[in-house]
Design a protein around this nucleic acid. Structure first.
Lengths: 202, 202
DNA sequence: CCTCAGAATTGAGCTTACTCAGTTATATAG
DNA sequence: CTATATAACTGAGTAAGCTCAATTCTGAGG
């Protein structure tokens, strides 16, 4: 019997180190070449682990992408929420939240689309997927908060409206029809749709 | 040189027959077992064609599902549009359109979700995918028509609202979070969201 | 009927995500 | 320190979608 070591024991430390190496390897390769152009073998090699080990840390290749992309999405969301505080008008505030998210899902458009696909269609019981879902919930909450600043909208259901906006974002960012558009054009398309939802009473 | 034969020549007839056999085989196997549980080999065998031939008629397995499911979707849409004519209220009319679509995408939920996934993320240059897109456009048009019956809504932009409703439908029908719900529950979720979009002025 | 260009078909083979039986490393007990 | 249980790791192997070089079939021209 031994006291619990402050440094979590070698086993735990090794696991953490491996996860870090895998995450770094996947991030670099996916970002540079795109998830479809990278094989799991390549990620395993770069992370210096066996190919089987990779799948102990991410159950599928898609989960590996979630692991990597969640970080970027979280950053985008944070910056968007911060920017939204500076805005007066509701629509401007919402667009301030959305714009960084569009950007982050279109820098490497293939990865962004695969990420969004996985959020909706992937296995929600997987940990990285659960984290992604938590992020979309945070996004909706942030949007709902901005909606709630307006009395008229407060009287409607900000949570439900935020959900609708979330669906609008998802489809507009994912659709193959929009692959060729610029970030601004996608943003415009989203804004127009939000506008028709909000401008209801006018 | 010979006059164009009424019966399109043996070559064309053979191609048509093969496509029919492939479609029938895929429909039966996918419907009974679900697209993920069926291999392309099995479809090829059942259709009595070589495995390579299959991919001349549908470039990917997903395209094969589109080929099969488009027919069901078209039927659902037609029956929904017909039902919508009997409805007075706008929301009732829209739900009349949507309900058969929900049903058709959830009878075999795995196939329905894969179908929806392919519509958004698949290759739009493929013929069966193009047909699926045409169906979603027809769906939006049908919804827009019902919206246009109301003067207030007519003043807003029925086409754009229909697009928003389309996004709502897509996410609610696809989301893994809703896998366990009944058709009615999914319908309710969709109706609630549409309601908050339409009930704007009230 | 015979020839032949090219359309249509084919299935062996390739790629790659993922599995699993066997191996190695770690921590605890005596 | 040695033994043992068990957690962690590994890479050869499997499965399945898809490709493509070789083959067969079709129809027009002579």
């Amino acid at each position: 019997m031994q006291a619990v070591p402050q440094t979590l024991g070698r086993r735990e430390r090794n696991k953490q180190e491996k996860l870090d190496r895998i995450t770094a390897a996947a991030r670099e390769l996916f970002t540079q070449y795109g998830v479809d152009e990278v094989t799991t073998q390549q990620v395993a090699e770069k992370a210096d682990v066996g190919s089987g080990t990779l799948f102990l840390y991410a159950k599928t290749k898609a989960e590996l992408l979630l692991l990597v992309h969640n970080v970027k999405y979280a950053e985008a969301l944070n910056s968007g929420v911060a920017a939204a505080e500076q805005e007066e008008a509701v629509l401007d505030g919402i667009m301030a939240i959305i714009r960084p998210i569009i950007k982050c899902n279109r820098v490497q458009i293939e990865n962004g689309r695969t990420y969004l696909k996985e959020i909706v269609f992937g296995d929600p019981s997987e940990p990285h997927h659960a984290e992604a879902l938590a992020l979309t919930i945070r996004t909706e909450a942030a949007i709902a908060e901005v909606l709630g600043r307006d009395e008229q909208l407060m009287a409607r259901d900000p949570g439900k409206i935020a959900r609708v906006i979330s669906a609008i974002m998802f489809v507009s960012m994912s659709s193959s029809a929009n692959s060729g558009l610029t970030d601004e054009q996608v943003g415009d398309e989203i804004r127009d749709q939000i506008n028709v939802v909000l401008a209801a009473g006018s």
